[in-house]
């Protein structure tokens, strides 16, 4: 069976054209809309296909972990007791913060309800580490919103459709998140490199980091809020600091999207910062300086004398 060579050549050219123009940094709006529409159309089928897997996901661990249940139960009870202490502390601190905010007349942004969503697709491609979740613009999800699972930050939303969104994972090559050590506030940028342990960059030579430091978002870029749990600092065999992600402690199947209003950079408020020219209601009297006497040249005086 032979097909038109012209059509095949055109399709090759179309593929190359798509590759050239569909890069994240220069992606035209029409491509973004097309991608979001395709994912939206596929999302019900993806949810349907993933449902049986979701139902049987605990079957394996159930049989594997029967022997360890008693130990796990004891450990969970201990953790629950500790968690009660931290909950009470959190309530007290929240009350204090409210009082301080009121005293200082701070206009803190109101925290909006988090949006829960199932992961409907786990597309395994070598080029992008992402997940598709079953919540989109219809539930207030927007690009840039942080996404967390039970244990910590998973990534952030990069594309939104009407019913679905794509989450770029922290491990992706294009992921950059400003973070800090909870203990010392040592700053870094968490950069994905397609390995399970993203690397910490721009930390300086004398960074105050130790193995096991709890790493949280620093909020320095204004894109993500401060204090979201990310992971633990570890050193690799080359001496570089990496982060063992908290979110990897459990399968990323159900996530929460936190609608966070990005802090606008000053450039966007430039219009608001333009100043009207200063106008005084009663203009100050202007002192008219008398004209300075013109010096008479010696030549003129000589002519008059003569």
């Amino acid at each position: 069976m032979r097909f038109s060579r012209t059509l095949s050549a055109l399709l090759f050219l179309a593929s190359i054209g798509l590759i050239v123009f569909d890069r994240p940094d220069v992606r035209p709006q029409v491509f973004s809309v097309f991608r979001a529409t395709v994912v939206d159309l596929a999302s019900p089928m993806l949810a349907l296909a993933g449902d049986p897997l979701r139902r049987i996901r605990n079957v394996g661990p159930y049989f594997r972990n029967q022997a360890a249940l008693a130990d796990e139960n004891a450990r969970l009870r201990q953790e629950l007791n500790e968690a009660r202490y931290w909950r009470d502390l959190a309530f007290r601190l929240r009350d204090q913060v409210e009082v301080y905010e009121e005293a200082l007349n701070l206009d803190a942004p109101v925290a909006r309800e988090r949006v829960g969503a199932w992961v409907i697709a786990d597309p395994q491609g070598p080029f992008v580490r992402s997940r598709l979740i079953g919540a989109g613009e219809n539930r207030g999800v927007q690009a840039g919103h942080p996404v967390l699972n039970v244990y910590g930050l998973v990534g952030r939303v990069v594309e939104t459709g009407r019913r679905s969104s794509r989450v770029l994972l922290l491990t992706d090559l294009n992921s950059r998140v400003p973070v800090m050590a909870d203990r010392s506030n040592a700053r870094a940028v968490l950069a994905g490199d397609n390995t399970p342990f993203p690397v910490m960059e721009y930390i300086g030579r004398e960074a105050d980091l130790i193995d096991g430091d709890r790493i949280v978002t620093s909020g320095d870029d204004g894109v993500l809020p401060r204090g979201l749990p990310v992971g633990q600092a570890i050193r690799d065999r080359h001496g570089r600091w990496r982060v063992q992600l908290f979110s990897d402690l459990a399968p990323v199947d159900f996530v929460w999207v936190f609608p966070y209003e990005r802090v606008p950079p000053p450039e966007q408020d430039r219009d608001a910062l333009t100043f009207e020219p200063l106008r005084l209601e009663s203009p100050a009297p202007v002192v008219q300086a008398e004209p300075a006497p013109q010096p008479q040249s010696v030549v003129e005086e000589d002519e008059e004398e003569s």
């Binding site: 399709l11 593929s15 590759i19 569909d22 491509f31 395709v38 080029f127 770029l168």
Partner: peptide, 28 residues
């Protein structure tokens, strides 16, 4: 036909989140 292969490749690119055209070109 090639057009079907192209469409499937683009769909795979979109669903995996990669740049469109990569799998389409590979399959073609």
């Amino acid at each position: 036909p090639p057009i079907a292969i192209f469409a499937i490749g683009v769909a795979q690119d979109v669903l995996t989140g990669g740049p469109m055209g990569v799998w389409a070109l590979a399959y073609l």
